[in-house]
Nucleic acid binder design. Structure first.
Lengths: 212, 212
DNA sequence: TGCTGTGAAAGACTTCACAGCA
DNA sequence: TGCTGTGAAGTCTTTCACAGCA
C-alpha cells in the first residue's frame, strides 16, 4: 500500500471525485462502492481497492460518506487549493481553453496567456489579455505557476516546452500531436485528438466486422 | 495473436504511425524497433510485440521499411480512406475543433457542424456553416457519418449522445466531463481536461515531496 | 554483425471471496 | 443483513533472452 499509484489509479480517482461531487449536488450523503462503480462502469472491488489508498474512510455496512470521501480524494490528488495555469499559444484552441469554464469549476485558474504573434499580444480573450511569450518567465516566477497548457503549432512544441521547463514549469498539458522529450522530473499529459479519433475508428471497424 | 488488441496497443499504433510519417518526411526509409521506441519512450521489445500483430513486415538485420510499416498500421487501424466526422455543439471548443487542422492532416474531414442555438445556426465558422441539430439525422444518413465530436454543455451530454446513437453514430469523442451510459456497440473516447490537469497536479506534488 | 519474431519469465492490474465490523 | 478492507487467485501487459534470418 506504500507503492506509487499508477496513472490509471490517479485517473480513476479524478473520476470518482467528479461523480461524487455530482452525486452530492443531487442530494446524496452516502454511497457504496457498488453504486459508485456502477455510475462509472468500474467494478465494486476495483473501487474499494482504489479507495483503500486513502486514509481509511469507509464505514462497513453503511458505505462511504460523500463529504469525507471527497475531502480524502482531494488531499490524495493535491487539489485542495486553486492551481494557477498558463496557456501558451493562443490560436483557436488556446483561446477556447482560456474560456473553458470547466477549469475554474474544478480549482484551476488561468493565470496568464502567452503568444509570440504581434497580432495576438495585447488582445483580450474572455477577459484575459494575451501577453508576450518573452514575459512568461517573470510571470511564472511571480505567481508561482507550475502548470502550463501548451497549444502551439506542432513544429514549435518541443522548443517551447523546453523554454517552459527552463522557466520552472513542472507539468505540461500538451495539445500538439508530438511526443515531448523532457527531463524526467517534468510531467506531460497528452491530449491528442487524432489518436482518440483513430481509436474510435478501430473500434467502429471491429464492430462492423463482427456483425457481418 | 488472434486476440483483440487492447486500447493501449491501439493507441501506441497511432503513435507509431505519426512518428513514422514524421520520420519519412525527414528522409528516413528504414527504421529499427530500437530507434522507433527511443523516439516515443517505448521499449524495443514492446515495439516488436506490437508490430507483430500486423502482417509480417520486419526485415531481420535491416529493420522495418517505413512505407510498408505505415501502410500496414493504416490497414490495422482502419484509417486508409478519409473518415467524415460531425461536430455537435458549436461553442468555443466546438468552433476550435471545426478549425483544427490536425484532423484533415490525418484523414478526418468535418462533414457538418450542429447546434440548437438560434444564434449559431447559419453562422459560418472556418468555412463550415453551422446547421440545426434537428437536421443531424438526415445529414448523417446522407453522408454515412459514423463519428461525432460531442462538445455540448455537461448537462446536455447524455441526452445528446443518445440522440447521436439513434441517428446511427458508432463512435463519439466526448469533451463533456461526464461518463456516458450508452449501448455496448457504441464506442466513446473521453477528452477530459480536468482529469488530465489533476494527473499533472498529482505528479507535480509527488515530485515536490520526493525532493524535500 | 544487426535485427526481427517469439516463447518463457516477470511484473502489474483486476477480480474473487470472505473475515469482520455496524 | 449490508458493506468495507484485503489476501489470494486470476488475467493481462511488459520485459527478457535467444533462435534464426539477411
Amino acid at each position: 500500500m506504500v507503492d506509487t499509484p499508477s496513472k490509471t489509479v490517479v485517473a480513476r480517482m479524478s473520476r470518482y471525485l467528479r461523480q461524487l461531487e455530482r452525486a452530492v449536488s443531487e442530494g446524496r450523503n452516502t454511497i457504496s462502492s457498488k453504486i459508485l462503480g456502477e455510475m462509472l462502469s468500474v467494478s465494486d472491488s476495483q473501487v474499494r481497492k482504489d479507495l483503500a489508498r486513502l486514509e481509511p474512510v469507509g464505514h462497513p455496512g453503511v458505505g462511504f460518506r460523500c463529504d469525507e470521501l471527497i475531502a480524502a480524494i482531494r488531499r490524495f490528488l493535491g487539489v485542495v487549493d486553486t492551481w494557477p495555469i498558463v496557456v501558451v499559444g493562443c490560436g483557436n484552441l488556446g483561446q477556447a481553453l482560456i474560456g473553458y469554464k470547466g477549469f475554474s469549476a474544478r480549482g484551476f485558474k488561468i493565470a496568464g496567456a502567452f503568444d509570440i504573434s504581434r497580432d495576438l499580444i495585447g488582445k483580450s480573450v474572455h477577459g484575459v489579455t494575451i501577453q508576450d511569450f518573452a514575459d512568461l518567465r517573470a510571470e511564472i516566477a511571480d505567481k508561482n505557476v507550475q502548470l502550463a497548457a501548451l497549444c502551439v503549432p506542432t513544429d514549435r512544441a518541443q522548443v517551447t516546452a523546453e523554454d517552459l521547463v527552463k522557466s520552472g514549469i513542472g507539468g505540461i498539458l500538451n495539445f500538439a500531436p508530438v511526443f515531448l522529450s523532457l527531463p524526467g522530473n517534468v510531467h506531460v499529459s497528452y491530449v491528442d485528438l487524432t489518436i482518440e479519433m483513430e481509436q474510435l475508428v478501430f473500434a467502429v471497424v471491429q464492430n462492423q466486422n463482427r456483425s457481418l
